[in-house]
């Protein structure tokens, strides 16, 4: 059975695309045939994070408009065989993603893929709605900041009322909280909302806490998803999240400033 995962947040710039790339890569590395789709029509950048921007010929909207076949538009990752990217269109409007078009593409992917990761645009309008509508699971990406937590709560409201699963009276979308850009040090100093604060407010299961890390920018500069960097705390934290997603019981790390200082010596803040 194919599982469709939406990576969503409401607020922009919180780490959705970074997370989509990390999750798709992580699942593929675990042996699952995975496709990752950029739903951010007009602001495509998943291809940059995945490092395949120079191989984009056709895009998601071309496939929806039947200007190209799905196989022509899918880009196979150059490092991982069972990982494919479907880029967004850079020139069209968000409305080019029709409900029927998106459903047709997802159905065709579902014939051969284990996981389909949908990288949602920011906002709560059409594009975000299309990205979440067909989802089985949702990764709600949240930063430890008031506006981001509030937007995540709004997204949870939509996931619980406007998705296909709800409309068809099936079990609701399975929701996971992913905290990103977390600074244990600032939490310790009382300058940042803690994991516990945010979990209390949003009350959905926590799948991961990704620390604020300079290696994320380096990874994006190079077009290599952060999850493959085993020397980076952020990379390791994404790896742990994949394990939890697949049902493993993994202890949280990089969330306690005191414990981290020991660990930090080994990693020198990378």
């Amino acid at each position: 059975m194919t599982r469709i995962i939406v990576v969503t947040s409401g607020k922009g710039g919180v780490g959705k695309t970074t997370t989509s790339a990390a999750f798709a890569t992580g699942l593929a590395l675990q042996g699952y045939k995975t496709a990752v789709i950029d739903f951010d029509v007009g602001l495509r950048n998943l291809d940059l994070i995945m490092g395949c921007e120079r191989r984009v010929v056709y895009d998601f909207v071309n496939v929806i408009n039947q200007e190209a076949s799905l196989n022509q538009a899918l880009i196979r990752d150059k490092r991982i065989d069972n990982l494919f990217i479907l880029p967004a269109s850079q020139t069209r409007e968000k409305e080019a993603l029709t409900m029927e078009g998106v459903e047709t593409v997802l159905n065709e992917l579902a014939e051969t893929f284990d996981y389909i990761v949908c990288d949602s645009p920011a906002g709560i309008e059409h594009g975000a709605y299309m990205a979440m509508y067909f989802a089985d699971e949702a990764i709600v990406v949240t930063n430890p900041e008031i506006s981001s937590v509030r937007d995540s709560d709004r997204i949870l409201g939509l996931l619980g009322s406007k998705t296909k699963r709800i409309i068809e009276n099936r079990t609701p979308v399975k929701e996971h909280l992913l905290l990103t850009r977390y600074s244990p040090e600032r939490v310790k100093n009382g300058e940042m909302l803690s994991v516990k604060d945010i979990q209390e407010i949003l009350s959905i299961p926590l799948i991961g806490v990704i620390p604020e890390s300079q290696s994320v920018l380096t990874a994006s500069n190079q077009g290599i998803p952060i999850i493959v960097n085993k020397n980076s705390k952020a990379g390791l934290a994404y790896n742990d999240s994949i394990g939890r997603f697949l049902g493993e019981d993994i202890e949280f790390r990089f969330i306690d400033a005191r414990k981290d200082s020991i660990f930090g010596k080994l990693f020198r803040g990378r």
Partner: peptide, 22 residues
């Protein structure tokens, strides 16, 4: 007061109000 405590309190009120309207 720690700014994180202020943030948590403001957020709790905000979200309760959002839920009420929702």
């Amino acid at each position: 007061r720690k700014s994180s405590d202020v943030a948590k309190e403001r957020l709790s009120i905000l979200i309760a109000r959002d839920h009420f309207h929702r």
